[in-house]
Amino acid sequence: MKQGRPLSPHLQIYRWPLAMVISILHRFTGVVLAVGALLLVIVLVSVAAGPAAYEVVRILVSSLFGQIFLVLWTVALFMHLFNGVRHLVFDAGYGFGIDATRNSGILVIVATLLLTVVVWSVAWLNGRFWI
């Protein structure tokens, strides 16, 4: 192989395109939420099982670890939700083109962070949670 030739792509200075990052995150958050759905059922079962079982779940969820987990859960949930809506718009035939997909991608991230902050502000103002 000849030396000094330009290599393509330059992996060390390669920046992941936003569209790619969001696409990967959509799958990743989907799998995370599948596990989250299992936890939702566990919570429901604990409520059905009675106060003692529910108390265990309540203490776990109210712990610092539980709260951090819940924050990450809401981020994953809203990210998947907003990007899902973005995909529904794509399916309807709108929002194609490099600028449009980029802008909607940024919008997904902003909306995710915003709704996460709003929901946790409600929880915090309600005064029951740690964070």
Partner: peptide, 13 residues
Amino acid sequence: AFSVAMLGSASHE
């Protein structure tokens, strides 16, 4: 999400 945020760490009852 908003309902659970309102409930917080509510009692079983």
